[in-house]
Amino acid sequence: MCNCKDKNIYLPYMMQVEKVTVEAPGVKTLRLKFKNEEEGNAFEFRAGQFAEYSAIGDGECTFCIASPSTRKGYVECTFRQAGRVTSSLAKLEEGDTMGFRGPFGNYFPMEEWKGKNLLFIAGGIALPPMRSVIWTALDEREKYGDVTIVYGAKTVADLVYKHELKEWEDREDVTLITTVDPGGETPDWKGKVGFVPTVVGESPINAENTVAIVCGPPVMIKFTFPVLEKLGFDKKNIYTTLENRMKCGVGKCGRCNVGKMYVCKDGPVFSAVDLAELPDDF
């Protein structure tokens, strides 16, 4: 059982902050590069996996890796400044050092999605986990059918990745539908106004040969699943990624346990079939 040469699973890689992007009020993206080149070269992940990002001295936070697995040499995370650790991460500048542990958890079965249409549905700060999958798909665009992205936020200002939204909007091989909550629109807003589940229900979406990937706050997921099923989606073609509170990321600390599953080990990616089997404890 014991091999004392095993690596310390709690020891983070040391990363250098290569680029800081302000996405929205209180939301930043950090691009990180491995300080040790060998570690960077050996690092691989799959879209959907998460990591533990640490502001050394303040603690660790769990986010999905927001950059696509098709682009090597760096990882990105996008987060909203909310507590002690994210406030500390938000203070980092280009050239600073921080910690990174990962990749952890399972990933989206993109191999199985070849030849299928992809429908991405994201709400608010939940676009970052999906961005990794979106860009991974777009980097290998020929493998998939139609790509549709439905993205909503509270207000126009809260939409993240604004430059990338523009890029997706301009692409002929992507259909982008953006929406903001009622009251969140600006006079020159050209997107939709309404909550994500409603907008999905009203959009011309064909469920045939389509996989839906949904990510957002629990309440958005709860109301979007029935809409998708009404549109004709089979539960096995609906995926989401759960964002439970985590500490270790490797199935030890116990807090992401839901029923017999550990979100960090068995997830974070679950199909609607998997979710239906979980007790209502997430």
Binding site: M1, C2, N3, C4, D6, K7, N8, I9, V250, G251, K252, G254, K265
Partner: peptide, 16 residues
């Protein structure tokens, strides 16, 4: 729990 998938080297060293 300290050994499924990921091995916890602190626990395993103490145990050994």
């Amino acid at each position: 729990v300290f050994n499924w998938d990921y091995k916890d080297v602190m626990y395993n060293t103490r145990r050994e």
